[in-house]
Design a binder for these strands. Structure first.
Length: 553
RNA sequence: UGGGGCGUGGCCAAGUGGUUAAGGCACCGGGUUUUGAUCCCGGCAUCGGAGGUUCGAAUCCUCCCGCCCCAGCCA
């Protein structure tokens, strides 16, 4: 708990100064996704930054859909985004905002700029506009339509809006500077014609505002004090400021940029994630291998883990790649503290305890968590026949105790929360495969130390053969087998890990887990953290992440 | 080659002229442990490079090198 010792970032410094100078009285931020895909871990950082700042300074954060391009947007995304932000545990101030709510206002501001001789209707097509724009090193040249009278531009804008002009034939442009070293300032497009219905405004509009003409004004309308976005928008800032300076806005928002989150072994680009979904490389946006919020949730990653991880990241202007291990640390940390313990045998091998009664059994009451009394207890049925994991048995009696702390013929091992047992012989089928182990218990060793002369090699998990449930376990590996899947010349799809999903059926889990519901987290002892899948009615557990594994074979 | 931004250990990152250069992840030792987990101890950099200013520089100046972003009627 060293939160108050955490150094403040550059945005907090700006806010502190603004507050001190009286330039700002209420800190208002916003999280402004375009509803053209699902939220991913990169958005989570932005969400934590924006909502976190608002919370820290007693202000508010808006959830605003930047729905200025109906071509790519969909209500499915709107709903998914709302669900994800809520699930992460954040609450926006007031109603949800939509850029499309401001279309009328934006339109009249466009007319205002035309009247100020700061905007004009341009008939250059896309190709010509590109030529006129110049290059990184060569200045552009003025559009032949640049000096068109305001009245004419006004009329043309009206026609564009009404659908009287074909798509691609005309745009409304800001009149700034075609020779600006910043290409974004070379008469950027404010409106383009799209004769397309919008998910919220229907077919009211045939023109839609561009990002640059909309964003700062949206912020101003909402009273956003600090408009925080990622680094790639830095070059748009002068344009943002130009509109803020030249329009009669209700407030004067400022834009600040920080480095977006990149994680190795995955991609955090909506475009690429959409491609994975569309081309069915994964099951959907919420596939447990996806870095989407919904995928992580289905995988079993908790909202707390995501938030703690995001809070561990710096808000700075460097663009690095965070090691997936850092994320995994927070996933494990939260689950270790909060997940109930349970036993699940993933590759069952039958063990018959010959000196244990056939007709009776016992119930061992054990804690739900080693150091969380509030997580209750569970009851483990014990009987003559149990399952252990095939990996926890070896016929090789030469294995040292240090190297193999599991069951070996003739030696002892502790069954977690139960007896110490010894393996006596193996039973095989016709093909030579071991089908059963016959062993024996050491009496009076439940909850008690081993008697003199007996030393268990280690502790292994188990489950009652008769009184346990069948389940399926899904184990995931990273989606990409290269740290920077989108680095090289080749497509990132070339680096998809073909073995990222392993489905194991016929696992045996302690009976209590038949009551597990989606969202319940468990630690399957000695294996890892699992959560019940949120799809279908079968008893399926997704492996969120394995336990740390430090021993060297 | 124009403009903008950035370079501190394997990764993330504090640091705003005087500190033994924080912290986290990873890694390496060791201890505890009925989870090879957790937990606990300990180890682990002279700051992209070269000059310069200064009693003193990661922090200031100069030059150089490297990386990222911008030439959508995407956001």
């Amino acid at each position: 708990m060293t939160d108050n010792e955490k150094p403040i970032n550059f945005i907090q410094q700006v806010i502190n100064n603004d507050l001190e100078a009286g330039a700002v009285t209420k800190v208002v931020t916003r999280f402004p996704p375009e509803p053209n895909g699902y939220l991913h871990i990169g958005h989570a950082k932005s969400i934590c930054v924006n909502f976190g700042l608002a919370e820290q300074y007693g202000g508010g954060c808006n959830l605003r859909f930047d729905d200025t391009n109906p071509e790519k947007e969909d209500d499915e995304y709107v709903n998914a985004i709302i669900e994800d932000v809520r699930w992460l545990g954040f609450q926006w101030q007031g109603d949800i905002c939509y850029a499309s709510n401001y279309f009328d206002q934006l339109y009249s501001w466009a007319q205002y700029l035309i009247n100020q001789n700061l905007a004009y209707a341009c008939e250059l097509n896309a190709e010509s506009m590109r030529e006129y724009r110049g290059t990184l090193t060569a200045a552009g040249k003025n559009s032949p339509f640049r000096e068109r009278p305001a009245a004419e531009s006004l009329a043309l804008l009206e026609q564009m809006k009404n659908g009287d002009i074909d798509e691609g034939r005309m745009t409304l442009r800001a009149k700034i500077d075609m020779a600006s070293p910043n290409i974004n300032m070379r008469d950027p497009v404010m409106y383009r014609i799209k004769k397309m219905a919008h998910q919220r405004t229907g077919d009211t509009w045939n023109i839609y505002p561009s990002y640059d003409f909309a964003h700062g004004q949206e912020d101003a309308i909402e009273g956003v004090s600090h408009s925080i976005c990622t680094l790639e928008f830095a070059a748009n800032r002068p344009l943002y400021e130009w509109f803020v300076a030249n329009l009669p806005l209700p407030s004067q928002p400022r834009q600040y940029e920080f480095g977006r989150l990149n994680l190795n072994y995955t991609v955090t680009s909506k475009r690429k994630l959409k491609q994975l979904v569309d081309e069915q490389h994964v099951e959907g946006w919420d596939d447990p291998r996806m870095p989407t919020i919904s995928g992580l949730r289905r995988r079993g990653v908790s909202a707390t883990a995501i938030r703690e991880f995001c809070d561990s990241l710096a808000v700075a202007k460097t663009d690095g790649v965070v090691d997936m291990a850092q994320f995994e640390h927070f996933i494990r940390d939260d689950l270790n503290n909060n997940a109930r313990r349970a036993m699940c045998v993933i590759d069952p091998l039958l063990v018959t305890l010959s000196n244990y009664p056939t007709d009776t059994g016992e119930e061992f009451v054990v804690p739900g968590h080693p150091n969380r009394d509030d997580l209750g207890e569970r009851s483990l049925p014990f009987a003559q026949q149990i399952y252990i994991d095939r990996n926890d048995f070896s016929e090789d009696t030469t294995l040292s105790r240090k190297k193999f702390k599991r069951l070996v013929i003739g030696d002892y091992v502790r069954l977690r929360s139960a007896y110490i047992i010894r393996a006596d012989e193996v039973i095989r089928d016709a093909s030579g495969k071991i089908t059963e182990i016959v062993g024996s218990i050491v009496p009076d060793t439940v909850g008690a130390d081993a008697p003199e002369g007996i030393k268990a090699r280690g502790v292994i998990h188990w489950v009652s053969a008769a009184d346990s449930a069948d389940c399926t376990v899904k184990i995931y590996d990273r989606l990409f087998n290269q740290a920077a899947p989108d680095a090289g010349e080749e497509s990132f799809l070339e680096h998809i890990n073909p073995d990222s999903l392993k489905v194991v059926e016929g696992c045996k889990v302690e009976r209590g887990l038949t009551a597990a519901v989606a969202g319940d987290h468990y630690q399957f002892e000695r294996e890892g953290y699992f959560t019940r899948d949120n799809k279908g009615s079968e008893l399926v557990f997704n492996c969120t992440i394995g336990l740390r594994d430090n021993w060297k074979a």
